[in-house]
Every structure is written in C-alpha cells, then in structure tokens.
Design a binder for these strands. Structure first.
Lengths: 193, 193
DNA sequence: AAAAACCCTTGAACCAGATTAAGGGTTCTG
DNA sequence: CAGAACCCTTAATCTGGTTCAAGGGTTTTT
C-alpha cells in the first residue's frame, strides 16, 4: 500500500532507506480517499496534513481580493499536495486544495511528520531535495511569466505537461498560466488544437 | 570572520551546532571580495560555488531570447547568492550574478559543499528549511504577479523591502517586479514619491 | 574638467490581453 | 430524463502597460 511513496523517497536518495526508516514511513502515513470536488484543504483552516498523491489529481489555488481564483499547482500521482507555508508555520491557510478526480492519498499529520524529521535525518535530506527542486521550478516559472507571451506560456505548458493537457480543463490551465479562459480559447483557435 | 554565517545557520536550528559542525563550516568557507560591477557568475559558465553575502549587494538575473534582462533576486547581507539549478545539476548556468556594490562573501566550492551534507546531517536540516522558505516566498511572488497590478506590486515591494528602495536603482526594481522602468516612473509620479 | 556611463522622466502611439455579454454543447446528479 | 452545472467559443470594446524617442541630471572614469 505504501509502495509508491517508499519508491518515490528512495529515488531521491543515493542510498535507499533501511528497514527502520521504511517502517517509520509506513507506520505514519495512512491511506485516505477523496471524491471528485471534495476539499483536502480550505482557506481559513489551519493545514496540519501533508499528502502524497497515489492516484487522481488535485489543484492548489488561492482566491484574491477580487474573488478571482488563481491555480498555483496541479498535484497528480507521485506528487505532494500541501500548503507548505501553513503546514510549517501553523497559520490559517490561504490556499485551497480540491480533488479534480476521485483520488487516493497517503496522509500524515504535522505531529507525526515532525517525528520523522527528529528521529531520521534521511527525511531532512529527502525533503531538502524536494524543496530545492520545487524552488528551482518556481523560479523558472516566474521567469517565464515575466518574459514569455501568453502564447509562449501555453506552448511551453503543452510541451512540459502533455499528460495534463487532456486531463485538466482549459479554464483551469488558463488560470495556472495567468491568463483568462477567453484568451486561451483564442490562442487555441489560431494555433491548431 | 565566519561569525555571521554561523549565526545565520544557528538561527534556523532548534539546537545550535556543536564545535565539530562549526569547524566544518569555518574550514570550508573562504572570504572573497567582489568589486562593484564584478560578476560572481556569468551565464554559460557552470556554477560550482555557493556564496553567503557578508556585506554588499548582488543581483541575480537572466537574459531572455530578446536580449532583455530580468532581475530574479537581490542578495544582501545574510542572504545567499547562487544559481541553485546550476550548482546541483552541474549544468551551465542560465543566470548572471553581479555585484551592485563592493561586497564580501563567504564562499564554498561544490565538492566541499557536498562533504558538509555527507558528514553532518545538520546541514540537510538547515538547507531544507532555507529551500522551503525560498519556495514559499517564490509561490507568493507568483501569486502577486498574477493577481496584483503593477502599482500594487510596487507598493508591496516598498512595504516588504524598505531597506532596498534607496539602495537599488528604480530600473532594477522595475525589472524585478516585471514592469518597464518607464511605467514605474509614471507610477511614482502619481503615487507620492 | 571633459567624456562616458548611468539614471530618471515625459509624452505620444500602440498592443497584448482583459472584460463583458451571449450562445450552445456536454456531463453530472437527483 | 430533466434540470443544473460545467465548459468552450466568439466577437466587440476597452485598458494597463509597452515601445519608441527624446532630453536633462548626476556620478564615474580618464
């Protein structure tokens, strides 16, 4: 049941986890199901969970002061769905996390999560590498948002995430890319499919 | 000489470093000076250094396919100046890092940097927390760039980095915020100073 | 002390992308 | 199987921000 998570962690480590470390994981992560449209986290609540997606798909989004939604991230199989700021800082979340499909996650509570860090240095290593990769990706996304046109960002999205293009609605992709759905529709008309 | 770095690391740890860990740092980080306008890293070179800024100021920027510069980050006292992607992935850097003032940094080579990780778990912890904070900040910046107007982004910058406003030229701040210097000038005319 | 290099400003013309509004198709759900 | 809830498209209008071009001030270098 925990195989995908163990595998994912080991892929980022030079030396795979030993049995005690793997047990620490399997003891603390529990499988939980979410139905399509169900919320894993709602803005205002304090996020005390970290969730590894086993199957399905979530979107992470914020609502701005004009009531507009902005999709920050899509989390699919073998990705993490969380509001990192809220999980670590123990503040009410500004983000919403909604299941876009029926989904299954392996979930851990903040307290148990801190136990992992305090007893097994290997998790500092794994989550360091993950956070570094996430930061590098976020930097690149910011560069694209400052230097690419809407059309270039859409073409880049298709090239980068071909498996998401037919899985997530265009309106949600438009929001992720920082443009209106109407404008994305116009782009699609001009640039074949 | 290494005091600011040791202090910075300890501030992010629950338990301060022990003498062996502190020695591991002081043995591996060397002080290096940069003159104003000197480059710490140029795009195309492979970045093999990580630099902790002791005094002075750097900008991290990329040049897009139209030849336009985009400032990604300013690194001042007690901050890090590096291209994380290039340092870890050992690929030629896409980023430039230029001293905006005469500056001093504590610098470590990639090889010695990996020795820290391999011998002292505390550095996985410290850089995990750093990377997580950087990622959280990058996410928030992306949200602002999608939901704020240019004027709101400038007001937010002043509130967030008052110490940088009179230290860095407006043209460089405009690039950091994703707008032209002409437009920032227009904003400043309307919104007092 | 002149030359060179920045740096900020102003204004006119322009444009990428937003807004508003409307219509039609498809897929959920009770 | 009917209504509700999405989802995508099209077109007209509008606007925040860019581009281009020019001028003047201040700092740095020689």
């Amino acid at each position: 049941m925990h195989a995908p998570l163990l595998k994912h962690i080991n892929q980022f480590l030079l030396k795979p986890m030993d049995p005690a470390e793997e047990k620490a994981v399997t003891d603390r992560f529990a499988l939980k199901a979410y139905r399509k449209r169900q919320y894993l986290l709602q803005a205002g609540d304090s996020s005390s969970k970290n969730s590894f997606v086993v199957s399905g798909c979530f979107r992470v989004y914020v609502v701005d002061t004009n009531g507009k939604e902005h999709n920050l991230q899509f989390a699919v199989e073998n990705g993490w769905a969380l509001d990192m700021g809220s999980l670590y800082k123990e503040e009410p979340s500004e983000m919403n996390i909604e299941a876009l499909e029926d989904s299954a996650v392996l979930q851990i509570e903040r307290k148990a999560f801190y136990e992992l860090y305090d007893n097994f240095p290997v998790f500092d290593r794994y989550f360091r590498i993950l956070a570094e990769n996430a930061y590098i990706a976020a930097q690149k996304r910011l560069i694209r948002s400052h230097s690419f046109t809407a059309e270039e960002r859409y073409a880049d999205f298709i090239a980068r995430y071909p498996h998401l293009v037919n899985r997530i609605s265009d309106a949600k992709i438009a929001s992720f890319l920082g443009m209106t759905p109407e404008f994305l529709s116009k782009l699609r008309r001009n640039f074949g499919k």
